[in-house]
Each structure stands twice: as C-alpha cells, then as structure tokens.
Amino acid sequence: MNDIGQVINAMIHYFMGDARRINHFIKVYGFAKTIGVLEGLDESTQEILEIAAVTHDIGIKNSEKKYNSASGSHQQVEGPPEARKLLEDLNFHPAVIGRICWLIAHHHTYDKIDELDHQILIEADFIVNAFEDDLSEIAIQNVSEKIFKTETGRRFLNKLYFSK
C-alpha cells in the first residue's frame, strides 16, 4: 500500500494557506477510513477509498477560478485532471488513479452509487458537510433515509446528530 501520508502531504501543499479545505479533507478521510475498516473493505478498495477521501475536493480551486463557484458539478469536472497529475507524480498505479478519478467525478452524484467505496465516500463527505454547513436535523434525516446505506455510516450519523 502506498503511503497515505504522501497524499495528505501533497494535498496540504496543494491547498496551502486554506486551512478550511485542509481540515475538511482530513475529517472526510478520518470518517471514510473508519467506515471502510468497520464495513470490512479489502485492502485495495480501502486504499482507493482513503486516497479518494483525501483528494475528493481537489477540483474546488479550479472551479472557483474558472466559474467563481465551488459547486459540486464543477468540482466533479475539474477534480479528476488535478488528481491525476498529483497521483501520477506520487507514482500510483494507473488503475488506482483511474478509480480515484472516477470517484472524484461522482462524489456529488447520489443517484447511481455503484460500489461500496463510492457509497462510503459520499457518506463520509456528508457527515462532515452536515456539520460544516450547519444543516438542520430534518435535512440530515432526509439524506440519511435517501442516501445512507452502510450500517457504520448510519450509526455515526445518528450518534453525531440525533443522540441527545
């Protein structure tokens, strides 16, 4: 397994001076890693999930430059080329890079979740976004019912937002 530390280091450099974005991907990484482990992902899928969690928002910088927007649809277009460059520089296998770029290109696409790594990435990102965007309990509950599928993701969401 390649060192996730190298990817985190490269992403901190990429988002240098943007503590909010760096903190976001670190939190998503923590939830994605933990959900993946507890859901029993195999080592290869776990590696892909963890790298995708760290790099999932890499398209934000170019989205803001080109479109003056950080919208998910722009991120999904702008992210994969940036991630590909970063991961090629770190000598990741082309198949691993391909799957990570696919996940980045679909991390805001909730209607065609194809595999468990995609499901977990979306759940981890939502868990963090719910807090960062100060979503209402009703909004969180609606997403939980419509999108969350893993036992671990549901448990974390419930313990974070509904166990009072």
Results as ranks from 00 to 15, higher is better:
Arg21Pro: 04
Ser136Tyr: 05
Ile97Arg: 01
Ala139His: 08
Leu160Phe: 13
Tyr110Met: 01
Glu145Ile: 05
Thr55Ser: 01
Gln75Leu: 05
Val128Cys: 12
Met11Phe: 02
Met11Ile: 04
Asp133Ser: 09
Phe131Ile: 06
Asn142Thr: 03
Pro81Leu: 00
Lys85Gly: 04
His106Trp: 02
Glu145Cys: 06
Ser73Gln: 10
Asn23Met: 09
Arg84Asn: 08
Ile97Glu: 04
Leu86Ser: 01
Ser144Trp: 14
Lys85Leu: 15
Asn91Thr: 05
Pro94Gly: 10
Asp133Phe: 15
Phe31Val: 03
Ile22Glu: 06
Ile113Leu: 08
Leu38Ser: 07
Cys101Ile: 07
Thr45Cys: 06
Glu47Pro: 00
Gly36Asp: 05
Gly40Ala: 01
Arg20Cys: 07
Tyr67Asp: 12
Phe15Lys: 09
Asp133Asn: 10
Glu115Lys: 13
Arg154Leu: 10
Ile113Val: 14
Ile48Asn: 02
Thr55Cys: 14
Ala105Phe: 00
Leu87Met: 07
Asn62His: 08
Ala53Lys: 00
Ile48Lys: 12
Val54Phe: 01
Leu103Met: 01
Leu103Asn: 04
Arg154Tyr: 06
Leu41Val: 02
Gly59Asp: 12
Lys146Asn: 03
Phe156Ile: 15
Asp42Trp: 03
Lys112Pro: 08
Glu132Arg: 14
Glu115Trp: 11
Ala32Gly: 04
Ile127Gln: 07
Ile22Gly: 05
Val54His: 00
Asn62Cys: 05
Val77Leu: 15
Glu43Gln: 14
Glu39Gln: 10
Leu38Cys: 10
Tyr29Arg: 01
Ser144Glu: 14
Asn23Pro: 02
Asn142Lys: 04
Asp114Asn: 14
Lys66Trp: 06
Val96Phe: 14
Ile97Gly: 02
Gly30Thr: 12
Asn23His: 12
Glu43Asn: 11
Ile140Asp: 09
Asp3Trp: 04
Asp42Arg: 13
Ile4Val: 10
Gly36Ser: 09
Thr109Trp: 11
Trp102Glu: 11
Ile60Asp: 09
Ile4Phe: 13
Lys33Ser: 12
Ser144Cys: 14
Ile58Val: 12
Gln75Gly: 10
Leu49Asp: 01
Lys65Ile: 08
Pro80Glu: 11
Pro94Ser: 09
Met11Gly: 04
Asp57Lys: 06
Leu103Lys: 01
Trp102Arg: 15
His93Met: 06
Ile100Asp: 01
Gln6Leu: 14
Asn129Leu: 12
Phe92Gln: 00
Arg21Gly: 06
Asp114Ile: 00
Gly79Arg: 00
Lys66Leu: 11
Glu145Pro: 00
Arg154Gly: 00
Asn68Thr: 05
Pro80Thr: 05
Leu121Lys: 02
His106Met: 03
Leu121Gln: 07
Asp57His: 08
Ser71Leu: 09
Gln119Val: 03
Tyr29Val: 01
Phe126Ala: 02
Ile51Arg: 02
Phe92Asp: 02
Lys149His: 07
Lys65Trp: 05
Ile26Thr: 07
Ile58Thr: 08
Ile122Met: 15
Gly17Gln: 09
Tyr67Pro: 07
